[in-house]
Nucleic acid binder design. Structure first.
Length: 481
RNA sequence: CGGGGUGUGGCGCAGACCGGUAGCGCGCAGCGUUUGGGACGCUGAAGUCAGAGGUUCAAGUCCUCUCACCCCGACCA
């Protein structure tokens, strides 16, 4: 047997690239740093999109679309914003064969052009809040890229809202952080830590940035979604003002929040094992694959007949099911193939099952025979499959949570911190009262960054592991993508 | 931008020191036998050897230049 996927232990980033190739999710494009998302990978993204879009509607947001090109001067209106993004801008200077009067930036994010429009749309407190989301591609000129995790062009949604008061805007910021966490946990089965970013790590132009941080299979952290409270920074830069009930002109308070195709990378790296991908049933393009098995020609029709009957039953019940009737592949090959592609549940139907009017169920989150259930009566198939899908969904979340807990360490001094990062890896929870400079030094010396200050903070006071100062503030540190 | 490496059928590689008919594995196509955990046999298709220039009777192989990609570093919402 040829080994197609490098074991995680041997080389984690090779494993990641192998899984993407073997599961047929994406491949590199002829343009450096860009990728082609293939149909199977794109369907996972569509699952992410649908899960988020439904939640956005439920929280009162509407979709709209703003242009890809942004006048360079717009970015320059917010000092911190342009400074943060300048190094990774793609700029169009020629159009229609002629040098442009003003260069156009290919959007790295849309705060500026949306701010510009909001200033025209908003006159009165009666126009507020404005709650808009856009699904779009953005471009950031990255030096080091990895499929899904960091590419020069990526797909995402960016929500942009404007509110009358700081309180309302802050509520919105945290509400959308909750939406992301809910999606990550319930749909993607990824346990995440909600937290606030340090000043060093926050969005260029934000007052405060919030994040959901997830732990990948190698113990590294991944920022899986962010929500920013922008204060009135962009309102001042773009003149987003309204007339309040007291007849006073006031600046709006704005927010922005985004989740990207990086989420697909998070799913791969949270759940994947040495067999390949493992997909949470809620997002799996194919939730159940049926593999028919026959030995002799006369068994064929009966097996395929039952297989199709079961397929129809499940499809009618709303299950995303696929019957793999390929005749040029053996059942064994198909088992491995669909495991590699992460399908949560497999049904095996052979001559023996036809005789018993039963099927065999196998779950992806438990390897080999242990995950198989024999002799499931056909009439109860739909019900049993539904139960099993729910169990797999739950099982993946539990496994990921247990892994994160097992790889989260508490430290109280810098020496231990360095040891843990170097040897054990994973997340470090520690009291922190250091400065941005201290943070930079830690990154330099250990490659670990301050991922976030979790929203759940302890009551007790402790001592900063670096400075020894008394503080109530806990921070999470880790190496990150 | 600095250091290192690699470019040969779709993919992974050998061939290069020592110049002489371009090969192997996987994949692909056809036919047959197979099929409860990655099947096998036979037949077949497919290569501007990254590009340009040079040396030579003869270049994948030697020389010069160029390009692309990968890894490490620097940089980084």
């Amino acid at each position: 047997m040829e080994r197609r996927i490098t074991p995680r232990q041997e080389d984690y980033s090779r494993w990641y690239l192998d899984v993407i190739r073997e599961a047929d999710l994406a491949e590199n494009a002829p343009v450096r740093g860009c990728m082609v998302i293939k149909p199977y990978g794109y369907r996972i993204w569509e699952g992410v999109r649908d899960g988020l879009d439904r939640r956005f509607r439920e929280t009162g947001h509407q979709n709209a679309y703003f242009p890809l090109f942004i006048p360079m001067s717009f970015l320059q209106k917010e000092a911190e914003h342009v400074e943060g993004f300048a190094p990774e801008l793609a700029v169009v200077t020629i159009g229609g064969g002629k040098e442009l009067e003003e260069p156009l930036v290919v959007r790295p994010t849309s705060e500026t052009i949306i701010g510009y429009m909001y200033s025209k749309w908003i006159q009165s407190y009666r126009d507020l809040p404005v709650l808009i989301n856009q699904w779009a591609n953005v471009v950031r000129w990255e030096l080091r890229t990895r499929p899904f995790l960091r590419t020069m062009e990526f797909l995402w949604q960016e929500g942009h809202t404007a509110h009358a008061t700081a309180e309302e805007a802050m509520e919105e910021t945290l509400r959308m952080l909750d939406v992301y966490a809910d999606f990550a946990i319930r749909d993607a089965a990824i346990p995440v830590i909600k937290g606030r970013k340090s000043d060093r790590e926050k969005f260029a132009g934000a007052v405060a940035s919030y994040t959901i941080e997830a732990m990948m299979g190698n113990g590294w952290a991944l920022q899986a979604g962010t929500s920013h409270y922008l204060g009135d920074n962009f309102a001042r830069a773009f003149d987003i003002k309204y007339l309040a009930p007291d007849n006073e002109v006031k600046y709006c308070h704005t927010t922005s929040w985004g989740m990207s195709t990086r989420m697909v990378g998070a799913i791969i790296m949270t759940h994947g094992d040495d067999q390949g991908l493992r997909l949470p049933p809620v997002l799996a393009p194919i939730q159940v694959v049926i593999v028919p098995i026959w030995r002799q020609e006369q068994e064929r029709a009966a097996v395929l007949g039952l297989a199709d009957q079961v397929r129809q039953m499940l499809a009618d019940g709303g299950v995303r099911v696929h019957l793999d009737a390929r005749e040029d592949q053996t059942p064994g090959f198909k088992f491995n193939d669909w495991e590699m592609r992460g399908v949560p549940v497999r049904i095996e139907i052979g001559p023996r099952d036809v005789q018993n009017n039963a099927i065999v169920l196998a779950r992806r989150d438990r390897p080999g025979r242990e995950g198989k259930i024999f002799g499931v009566p056909v009439p109860s198939a739909l019900e049993r499959v539904r139960e099993l899908l729910a169990e797999v969904q739950q099982g993946l979340l539990e496994q990921a949570t247990a892994f994160r807990e097992a790889n989260t360490h508490t430290v109280t001094d810098y020496e231990t911190f360095k040891e843990v990062i170097e040897e054990a890896g994973g997340f470090i929870r520690a009291y922190w009262a250091g400065t941005s400079e201290d943070e930079a030094r830690i990154q330099e010396e250990t490659k670990a960054t301050l991922r976030c200050f979790p929203l759940d903070q302890p009551e007790e006071e402790g001592r900063c592991f670096l400075t020894g100062a008394k503080t109530r503030q806990i921070a999470i540190f880790a190496r990150a993508y």
